[in-house]
Design a binder for these strands. Structure first.
Lengths: 102, 102
DNA sequence: TTATGACTTGTCAGATATTGACAAATATAA
DNA sequence: TTATATTTGTCAATATCTGACAAGTCATAA
């Protein structure tokens, strides 16, 4: 599973941008971008934000995919993956931050 | 969130076992066990299995809690935590291993 | 063919994080 | 006090991650 990298590549190609161009704005070299797109290396959180700006993409979408990749990495070989995710989800519900100024 | 460590401690105390006794069977020292119970250090997967044997506990329950802790660690500060978990969950459904000899 | 541009692969040292082990501190009870 | 249980802090060894670079492949064009 490499949802983040796949999406980044998709967006980049849709907009006919070269790795060189995107990498430049991220201040990384093209080998690094290539690896991020293929899921061989993981982008930093700040880079995910930058990706969304460069690619005029939905920041929330990219962060979600980026997180999902990391989560999936942990549970991917586990029979109890779904159970574990549900437990984590419940904990998220429980400890959800109150919305500021709601 | 330290569901695994909390459960281990609960089980250990229910059975009036000392850290020393449990640690011995795990081949770790008591400071290490103390840290695992309090979530300061993470148990290895093999140790989770051993915990379930020592404490006569449900192996699946402990593995699930242990995984959930690790997953939660990744998403705990994220507004999109739940979304990300749902994406990961869907991927688990999709790529679930067929049950052997079903 | 050679040349060029886009991308990928492999490597590597430096930085960072994790690990297991130990001493020492604290707590609790006799 | 003493002894026992647990926690805290530290540390070197190890493992993992990181960024950067050279060199590779692949496709297209001259």
């Amino acid at each position: 599973m490499n949802k983040f990298g796949d999406r980044v590549r998709e967006l980049r190609e849709q907009q006919n941008l070269l790795q060189r161009q995107v990498a430049g704005k991220l201040d990384i070299d093209t080998p690094m971008l290539s690896k991020i797109e293929r899921g061989e290396r993981r982008a930093k959180r700040e880079q995910v934000i930058t990706f969304s700006e460069i690619l005029s993409a939905d920041q929330n979408e990219l962060i979600t995919l980026w997180l999902a990749d990391r989560v999936y990495e942990i549970v991917k070989d586990e029979d109890l993956a779904t159970d574990a995710l549900k437990v984590a989800e419940k904990e998220c519900e429980y400890s959800k931050k109150p919305i500021a100024k709601a």
